[in-house]
Lab assay of single mutants.
Amino acid sequence: EFTQISGYVNAFGSQRGSVLTVKVENDEGWTLVEEDFDRADYGSDPEFVAEVSSYLKRNGGIKDLTKVL
Rank of each mutant, 00 (worst) to 15 (best):
N10A: 03
V9K: 08
V68Y: 12
E47F: 03
D41V: 07
G7A: 04
D36C: 13
W30S: 11
G7M: 07
S18E: 03
Y55K: 02
G43N: 12
L56Q: 00
L20A: 01
T66F: 10
G60H: 06
T66A: 08
G29W: 03
Y42D: 01
Y42K: 00
K63G: 06
T21F: 05
T66V: 09
D36V: 12
Y55I: 02
V68L: 11
Y55H: 02
A40G: 07
V52T: 01
F48L: 03
G29M: 02
S44M: 02
D45E: 10
K23A: 02
E28N: 09
E1I: 14
D41G: 06
L65R: 07
D36R: 12
V52C: 06
E1F: 12
T66D: 15
Q15W: 15
D41W: 08
V22K: 00
N26S: 11
V9W: 06
L69R: 03
N59P: 02
E25M: 14
S14W: 12
P46R: 14
L32D: 03
S14F: 12
Y8K: 06
F2M: 06
S6H: 11
L65G: 11
V24N: 01
Y8M: 05
E35H: 14
S53T: 13
G13Y: 13
Y55E: 01
V49L: 14
T3M: 12
F48A: 01
F37G: 01
W30Y: 13
S14D: 03
T21Q: 02
S18W: 07
T3S: 11
A11K: 00
F2T: 05
L69I: 15
D64V: 07
D41N: 12
V49G: 05
L20P: 00
R39Q: 04
G7F: 05
I62P: 01
K57Q: 13
F48M: 05
Y42I: 00
V68F: 12
R58S: 09
S53P: 00
K63Y: 13
D27I: 10
E47T: 03
G7R: 03
L65Y: 14
V49W: 15
L32G: 05
F37K: 01
W30D: 13
V49Y: 14
A40C: 15
E25C: 15
S18Q: 07
G61V: 13
F37L: 03
F2L: 06
S6N: 13
G13K: 11
K67Y: 15
T21K: 09
G7W: 06
T3Q: 11
D64H: 06
N10P: 00
L69G: 14
E1C: 15
V22L: 05
R58G: 07
S44V: 02
I5R: 02
G17C: 07
Y42M: 02
A50R: 10
G29K: 04
N59D: 00
E35G: 08
F37N: 00
V33Q: 06
A40M: 10
D45K: 04
I5S: 04
K67W: 15
V68D: 15
Y55P: 01
V33D: 05
V52E: 01
Y55V: 00
D41A: 10
P46Q: 14
D38M: 02
G29C: 07
V33T: 09
L65S: 13
Y55L: 02
S14K: 14
G43E: 11
D45H: 09
D41Y: 07
L69S: 15
V19L: 05
L65Q: 09
E25S: 14
Y55D: 01
T21P: 00
E28S: 11
G61N: 03
W30T: 14
D45R: 04
T66G: 11
D45Y: 14
S44Q: 03
K63M: 13
S6R: 11
F37R: 00
V22P: 00
G13A: 13
A40F: 08
A50V: 06
G13P: 02
K57G: 09
I5D: 03
A50D: 08
S6M: 10
I62R: 10
E1M: 11
G17W: 04
V9F: 07
N26Q: 04
L69V: 14
D27H: 12
G17V: 03
S14A: 09
G60I: 02
G43W: 06
S6Y: 13
E1T: 13
P46L: 15
L32A: 05
Y42H: 02
E51R: 08
D38H: 03
Q4S: 08
G29L: 04
G60V: 02
E28Q: 13
Q15F: 14
N10C: 15
Y8V: 04
N26E: 02
V19D: 00
G43K: 13
S6P: 14
N26M: 06
S44T: 08
V68C: 15
Y55T: 00
I5Y: 07
D45W: 15
Q15E: 06
D45N: 06
F12M: 05
W30Q: 14
Y42G: 02
A50M: 11
D64L: 07
S53K: 13
G7N: 06
S54R: 12
S53M: 14
T31K: 05
G17H: 03
F2V: 05
Q15R: 13
D36P: 04
V33I: 09
V68T: 10
N59K: 05
E25T: 14
Q4W: 09
D38L: 01
G13I: 12
N59E: 05
S54T: 09
A50W: 08
E28D: 11
T66Q: 12
S44P: 02
E25K: 14
D27P: 11
A40E: 09
D38I: 02
L65N: 13
L56S: 00
I62G: 03
T21W: 05
R16S: 09
E51L: 07
S44C: 06
P46A: 14
Y42S: 00
V33W: 13
G7Y: 07
K57W: 08
E51V: 13
S44N: 06
K57F: 10
V22Q: 00
V68K: 08
E1N: 11
G61I: 06
S54C: 13
E35F: 11
D36M: 10
A11I: 03
R58Q: 09
S53C: 15
T3I: 11
D38T: 02
D41R: 08
G13H: 08
E51A: 15
G43L: 09
G60E: 02
K63T: 10
D38Q: 02
V52M: 03
A40P: 00
E47H: 05
D64W: 07
L65W: 12
L20H: 01
I5L: 10
E47Q: 07
K67N: 15
V52Y: 05
E25P: 01
G13Q: 13
D45I: 08
K23R: 14
S53I: 15
G60S: 03
D64G: 06
V9A: 06
D64S: 07
F2I: 05
K57I: 10
V24H: 00
D27N: 12
G29E: 02
V33M: 08
T31V: 14
K57A: 11
S54E: 14
T66N: 15
F37P: 00
G61K: 04
D64Y: 09
D64F: 07
T3H: 11
V19H: 03
A40W: 07
E25Y: 15
Q15N: 08
G43T: 09
L56F: 01
E47M: 06
T31H: 04
K67D: 15
D36Q: 15
A40S: 09
F12A: 01
E28A: 08
K57T: 10
E34Q: 13
G13L: 08
Q15Y: 15
T3K: 14
G43F: 07
S54A: 13
Y55A: 02
L65I: 12
V52G: 00
K57C: 15
G60M: 05
S44D: 06
L69Q: 14
Y55S: 01
N10V: 05
S18D: 05
F37I: 03
A40K: 13
R16P: 03
Q4K: 13
V68H: 11
K67Q: 15
V9E: 04
G29T: 03
L32S: 07
G17L: 04
V68E: 15
E51Y: 10
G61F: 05
G60A: 05
G7H: 06
D64N: 07
Q15D: 03
L20W: 10
N59I: 06
R39P: 02
S18T: 11
S54W: 09
V33S: 12
R39M: 06
E35R: 15
L56R: 00
E35K: 15
G43C: 13
V49A: 11
V49K: 10
E28M: 12
F37T: 00
Y42L: 01
F48P: 00
E28I: 11
N26K: 05
F12Y: 11
P46G: 13
G17K: 02
E51P: 00
K63E: 14
D38W: 03
V49P: 01
N10F: 04
K23W: 13
I62L: 11
K67M: 15
S44I: 01
V19E: 01
D45Q: 07
E34N: 05
L20G: 00
G7C: 15
K63W: 11
K23V: 08
V68N: 11
I5G: 04
R16A: 07
E47P: 02
L65H: 12
L20N: 00
G13V: 11
D38S: 02
N26I: 06
R39K: 04
N10T: 05
S53V: 13
F48K: 00
K67P: 15
V24D: 01
D27T: 10
E51S: 12
F48T: 00
T21M: 04
G7E: 05
A50Y: 09
E25N: 11
I5E: 03
E51D: 11
I5P: 05
G61T: 06
N10Y: 06
S6K: 12
Y8Q: 05
S18A: 04
S54Q: 11
A11D: 02
D41S: 09
V22I: 10
E35C: 15
S44Y: 02
Y8W: 14
G61S: 06
R58W: 08
G13D: 01
S18R: 05
V19C: 08
G60Y: 07
